[in-house]
C-alpha cells in the first residue's frame, strides 16, 4: 500500500512523533545539512538532491562514545548504559540506510554483538527518502544499490513535488503512517516510473565483473603509489564514509572513562605497533587498504561491496581523488599474476 503525505504536513508529522520517540531529520548547520534531533523549532533540509555531509552512521556509531566508566569510590569499572530511547530517523537516503545494514554484519555479529550499536539499531525506525535526482558524484547503482534501494528501511518516500509518496516496508513503518490518504493506482504507477527512471539514468561508474579478483592481483602493483602521490593522508574520505567503522579505544583520565573514537586507516598512527614497526608505513599502503577493504575484503565477509556509492569521499576530497576513477584505473591496469611457489 502506498500513501500520500503532503510536504506541508511533514513538519507537523515529525513534531507529533516526538511524543513517542526521538526524531532525527536533516537540518541546516552553516551551509550543509546534518541529522539533528527534531525540536519545537526546526527546519527540515532535504532540498539538496543528495545526502547529508556528515554520515548518519554517527546516529548508530557516534564518533565518540563512552564504553565504560571508572568508579573511584568502588574502585572498579562499570559499563556505560546502552541507549534505551526509541528513535525515528527521517529522510535518510537509501545509500546511508544500506550502509547501516552492512555495518550490522560487523556490530550485530552473532558471536560478539556490540551492545551499543545493537541497542540503537533495535530502537530505530528508518524512514528513507529515495533519490529522484541522484547527483553527479553518486554511484549507488554501480555497487549493488540504487537510488530507491530498500535495504534497512522501514518506509521509503518518493518526492512527488508537493507530496511524498510513502511506502511502508515493515510493520514499524506501517505503524508510523496511519490515517494517510492511499495513493491511487495511477499515482502508484507514476511513483514506479520515477523510481525506475532515476535508477535507469544513473551512469554506471565501473564494472564489477571480476573486480575483486583483479584488485587482489594488483596488490603489489604501482598504481597504489600513483593514487597515493597526491593523497594528503587526512581522514575526510573515511570519516564521511557511511561504511567505514574503524575505531580507537582510549582512556580519558580526567573524565574517568574509556571511550571509543572513530579512527581511520589513512592515519599513520592507526597501524603503528608498539615496537615501532608499521605494517602500512606509507600512504601507498594506506590508500590501498582503504580501497581494498571496500572492494575486496568486504566481499569475503558479506558477499557485498563495502561501499554504497554515496559519493561523499568524491565530493569532499581536498585533492580531488575520486574512488570511482581509482577503481576504473585499476580495472584498466593489467595484472601481472605473481607466480605462486
Amino acid at each position: 500500500m502506498t500513501y500520500l503525505l503532503k510536504k506541508s504536513e511533514v513538519n507537523q508529522t515529525l513534531r507529533a512523533w516526538t511524543s513517542k520517540a526521538h526524531v532525527y531529520a536533516p537540518q541546516k548547520v552553516q551551509k550543509y545539512a546534518q541529522f539533528l534531533p527534531v525540536g519545537e523549532d526546526f527546519e527540515l533540509s532535504v532540498e539538496e538532491p543528495h545526502n547529508t555531509r556528515f554520515p548518519p552512521k554517527a546516529l548508530f556509531l557516534p564518533q565518540s562514545e563512552t564504553l565504560l566508566k571508572y568508579n573511584p569510590q568502588k574502585r572498579e569499572l562499570e559499563s556505560a548504559k546502552t541507549p534505551d530511547q526509541p528513535r525515528i530517523i527521517f529522510g535518510i537516503r537509501p545509500c546511508d540506510a544500506k550502509a547501516v545494514t552492512l555495518l550490522d554484519s560487523v556490530f550485530s555479529s552473532e558471536d560478539n554483538p556490540d551492545p551499543f550499536w545493537q541497542a540503537r539499531r533495535d530502537q530505530s525506525v528508518l524512514v528513507g527518502l529515495g533519490c529522484d535526482q541522484p547527483c553527479a558524484t553518486c554511484f549507488c547503482t554501480s555497487v549493488e544499490s540504487g537510488p530507491f534501494d530498500r535495504s534497512g528501511l522501514d518506509a521509503i518516500l518518493t518526492d512527488l513535488g508537493d507530496t511524498y509518496a510513502v511506502e511502508p516496508l515493515t510493520e514499524r513503518g506501517v505503524s508510523l503512517f496511519e490515517n494517510l490518504t492511499v495513493a491511487s493506482a495511477e499515482t502508484t504507477q507514476t511513483i514506479q516510473a520515477i523510481q525506475e527512471k532515476a535508477t535507469r539514468e544513473m551512469p554506471i561508474a565501473f564494472g564489477r565483473e571480476g573486480l575483486k579478483a583483479h584488485l587482489d592481483e594488483l596488490f603489489e602493483n604501482e598504481i597504489w603509489e600513483d593514487f597515493a602521490k597526491s593523497c594528503l593522508g587526512c581522514g575526510i574520505c573515511t570519516f564521511l564514509c557511511p561504511t567505514c567503522f574503524c575505531f580507537d579505544i582510549v582512556d580519558e583520565v580526567r573524565k574517568s572513562t574509556r571511550e571509543r573514537n572513530w579512527d581511520t586507516c589513512m592515519f599513520k598512527v592507526y597501524s603503528i605497533e608498539a615496537s615501532g614497526h608499521n605494517p602500512r608505513p606509507s600512504r601507498r599502503e594506506r590508500t590501498r587498504q582503504r580501497l581494498m577493504h571496500k572492494y575486496s575484503y568486504w566481499l569475503d565477509h558479506t558477499g557485498q561491496t563495502g561501499c554504497t556509492g554515496c559519493g561523499r569521499c568524491v565530493r569532499y576530497c581536498p585533492v580531488g581523488l575520486d574512488i570511482r576513477a581509482m577503481v576504473r584505473k585499476s580495472v584498466a591496469t593489467p595484472s601481472e599474476v605473481p607466480h605462486v611457489d
Binding site: 571508572y70 573511584p72 569510590q73 583520565v253 580526567r254 573524565k255 574517568s256
Partner: peptide, 12 residues
C-alpha cells in the same frame, strides 16, 4: 571544557 578530576579519581 575539561571536567575536573573527581575526588579520589584516577590520576595521570
Amino acid at each position: 571544557t575539561r571536567s575536573v578530576l573527581p575526588q579520589g579519581g584516577a590520576h595521570d
